[in-house]
């Protein structure tokens, strides 16, 4: 992997083996790409092509069946495909941030706490973390009266904006986005795009799935087209 690269995937394959159904479901075959810092790779392809699976492999949520996923981490290189659970935890804490399609949190935790948690974890003073989190939530048009409430009570769009805020607040070197703007209206989509552009501007590498064409065109420097996956093997 070159020094300027944030992520380099080499021949990543993933087959889900469902023991109880006696089936093997191929999801990714020999996917390779290399992405420099400050640039965005859009992962594209038909539904079921393995776009989310690829993102999940990069995040260590899914175990690659073969291949390597090299990530620039704390001045060294970590192969996510071989990393131990604790290495992955450190990777997520320090290097890789992930905005999923859905927000999954402990029921009673407030929006402000959810967004400031990654900052507090990285050592920022609690007051400062909350201030920064509040500013970002406000920028994403979350009314301040909602800050103290748990997002379980929010609308889908509000919840997704909390999710985006949580993923972007920490200025991670590598950001993974799984349809981050899917449930946002036009104005908020615009704001989310601006935030991601700013993240790129400060050097973040972004790998994203964008179902919205406009969003993809505004953000992507490269497009990785995944082919439709071959049928399930018996």
């Amino acid at each position: 992997m070159e020094r300027s690269h944030a992520v380099a995937a080499e021949k990543v394959s993933k087959t889900f083996i469902l023991h109880n159904l006696r089936s093997r479901i191929p999801a990714l075959r020999d996917v390779s790409f290399a992405l420099p810092f400050g640039e965005c790779l859009a992962v594209s392809g038909p539904s079921g092509a393995g776009k989310s699976t690829l993102l999940r492999c990069l995040y260590g949520n899914c175990l690659a069946s073969s291949g390597s996923i090299l990530v620039s981490h704390l001045g060294g290189i970590l192969d996510v495909a071989l990393a131990s659970p604790r290495e992955i935890l450190a990777l997520r804490e320090r290097t890789v941030s992930y905005v999923s399609q859905f927000l999954r949190v402990i029921p009673r935790v407030s929006a402000l706490e959810i967004v400031s948690a990654p900052l507090a974890k990285s050592g920022l003073a609690p007051g400062e973390a909350r201030e920064k989190a509040a500013a970002l939530l406000a920028r994403l048009n979350i009314p301040s009266r909602l800050f103290a409430l748990p997002p379980m009570t929010f609308s889908g769009g509000e919840r997704q904006r909390v999710n985006i805020a949580r993923g972007l607040v920490r200025e991670a070197p590598i950001i993974l986005l799984d349809e981050p703007t899917a449930s946002l209206d036009r104005a908020n989509r615009r704001i989310a795009v601006d935030l991601i552009v700013e993240a790129k501007g400060r050097g973040a590498a972004v790998v994203g799935i964008f179902h919205d064409r406009e969003v993809q065109e505004a953000l992507a420097d490269h497009v990785l087209e995944l082919p439709a996956v071959p049928c399930a093997e018996g």
């Binding site: 109880n20 999940r56 260590g60 949520n61 175990l63 659970p85 992955i88």
Partner: peptide, 18 residues
């Protein structure tokens, strides 16, 4: 055994999958 979300989202063993 493994990372919690990985074990739950991509379980490897037949029993965990069940």
């Amino acid at each position: 055994s493994g990372l919690t979300d990985q074990v739950l989202d991509d379980p490897q063993e037949p029993y965990t999958q069940l």
